[in-house]
Design a protein around this nucleic acid. Sequence first.
DNA 1: GAGATAATATTTAGGCTTGAAATATTTATG
DNA 2: CATAAATATTTCAAGCCTAAATATTATCTC
Lengths: 157, 157
Amino acid sequence: MSQNKRSEKSEPQSKQNLRLWLRLLKASRIIETQLREKLRQEFASTMPRFDVLAALYRFEKGLKMSELSNVLMVSNGNVTGIVDRLVKDGLVLRVPVAGDRRALLVRLTAKGREDFAVQANAHESWVDDMLSEFASKGGAEFSDQLDELTKSLEERI
Amino acid sequence: MSQNKRSEKSEPQSKQNLRLWLRLLKASRIIETQLREKLRQEFASTMPRFDVLAALYRFEKGLKMSELSNVLMVSNGNVTGIVDRLVKDGLVLRVPVAGDRRALLVRLTAKGREDFAVQANAHESWVDDMLSEFASKGGAEFSDQLDELTKSLEERI
DNA sequence: GAGATAATATTTAGGCTTGAAATATTTATG
DNA sequence: CATAAATATTTCAAGCCTAAATATTATCTC
C-alpha cells in the first residue's frame, strides 16, 4: 500500500505516468522486434547472442560468467545456455581462470570477433534507418532525457 | 541543430542514434524487470498474463485469439499457451463464435475481472512510484515525443 | 457446385528467461 | 585443521516467444 492514493477522481498524474510507460514499452518493442527479425534473417542469430558478443567485443580480455550476466542485466543461468550455443558455433571460448578453479573467462574467438564486427555494422545502420527521421527533430534532447530517466530509475534501487 | 554537440570530432549521427536506442532499451528493461518482479511477488503472476488480462478487460465482449495476438503484438502460437494457463486458473474462458467454427472468443470470467481490477490498480501505482520523480520535470513533453517516435516507427512498416 | 485461396487456431521445435536448488571451489573462522 | 560461509557456475522446472507446419473452416472464382 503506497502512500499515494491515486484512486481519487481528479488525479490524472498516475494515468499520465502509466501512459508514458506504455508508450516507452511500445516504442521499445517495435524497435526490438524489427532488430530481432533482421538478426534472424541476415545472420541467423538472435538478440541475446548479439548482446553477449557485444559485451565480449567491448571487454577484449574476456568476462567471467557472473560479470557477463551483470553487464547484460540478466540472470546467471540464462547466460550459461547462450554461451553454450556460442561455444558450439565457435564464436566464443570458455577459458579457466588461473588461481580460481570455480570461475571461467568467456572470450571471443577470432571468428567471433570477425563475425560480430560485421553484425555490429549492420545493426548500427538498421538502428540509424529506424531512428534518423525522428532524431532529426530534437533527438539529442530526447536522448538526454532518456538518460535522466534511467538515472532516476537507478536511484530508486 | 545540435549536430556537433559532442566533441570536436563530431560523432556520426548513426552513433548518436545507436545510443538513443540503447538508452531507450535500458530504461525500458529496468521498468519491465521491476514490474515483473512485483507481479510475481504480489500476485504470483507474469507480464504476459497481465497483458492478456488487460486487453480482455478493455474489450469486454471478448477477443478472438488472432485479435488478441494483434493487440498484444505477439505471435499467435504464443497466446495459445498463455490463454491455456489462464483458462486453467479460471480467469478466462474460450467461447465458440456463432457462425464461424474456426474462431474462438476469449473472455474474462467474473473472477478474472475481479482479480485484474486489483492487479491493475497496483500496477498503476507501481508505475507511478517509478516515474513520478522523472515526470515532474517535463514528463508530458517527453511522453509526447515518445508518441511521435512510435508514429515515426510505424510509418516505416 | 468444385477447386483454389484465405482465415483461424493449434502444434511443434528450438531458443530465451527466471528463480531456486545443486555442485564445486575458495575464503574465513574457530 | 575442520567447518562454515561466501563465491562461481550449472542444472532444473516452468513459462514465454517465435517461425513454420498442420488442421479446420470460410470464402471466392469459375
